[in-house]
Simulated scan of single mutants.
Amino acid sequence: MNDQNLQNFIELSALLTGLSSDHLAPSDDPVNLPPVFFATAQSGMGAAAFSHLLELFVSLKGRPEKEIAAAILDRKDSPIAQGARSIMKLWLLGSWYQPYDLKDAQKTQGDIHVVSDQAYKESWAWKIAQAHPMGYSQYHFGYWAEQPPTLEQFTGVKAKEGQQP
């Protein structure tokens, strides 16, 4: 894996999840999940399909985000669209959902597997829900009595007009 491929993967992931790349891969990141997720997606999709997805994304850079997302996700049952959906689930849930049969990969890991305890604990579903996994919390005792931070503070996504902040 080279640094440019990892950066393209992070940018693609940001586009697919709607989260900023700075939030997905902060400069000061002790957990460092992006390389783990890169390797998981490459292994789960297969090197050829994963490479094709990244090449497609790079070829579309500079176009509107909706157009890029449509070009990737509107391919119905193609490995590109299925893999992209699994990448979204990977960031949001910390688990890899095998999008299609890769023979050996599926037999050894099963259809769904948690990537790591850190991936599960740091998954974005918890941050978006402003919650934490059972048995783990970095918050102090009694935090539930305080007003929670806005969703924008967790995700970097600004609320649209008429939405709750």
Rank of each mutant, 00 (worst) to 15 (best):
K89H: 15
P30T: 08
A145N: 11
A49I: 02
Q163V: 05
D28G: 09
K66V: 11
A131C: 12
D22W: 03
L33R: 06
A159R: 08
P148H: 01
W124V: 03
D111V: 15
L54P: 00
E55T: 15
E11G: 07
L6N: 06
M45L: 09
L93K: 09
A25W: 08
A39H: 07
S86Q: 02
G83T: 00
H140S: 12
Y100L: 01
D3Q: 13
P30C: 11
H113G: 08
D3E: 15
P79I: 01
S20E: 03
D28P: 07
M134R: 14
N8A: 08
S137E: 05
G135T: 03
P99N: 01
E122T: 06
P99H: 01
V157S: 04
Q118T: 12
F141P: 10
N8Q: 14
K127S: 13
M88T: 06
A47K: 15
F38Y: 09
V115P: 04
I10P: 07
S51M: 11
P30G: 04
A70L: 11
A145G: 09
P35S: 02
L53S: 01
Q130P: 05
Q130H: 08
K103D: 15
A105T: 12
L16T: 00
L92D: 05
Y100P: 00
M1Y: 10
W126H: 06
Y139W: 14
H140W: 13
Q147H: 13
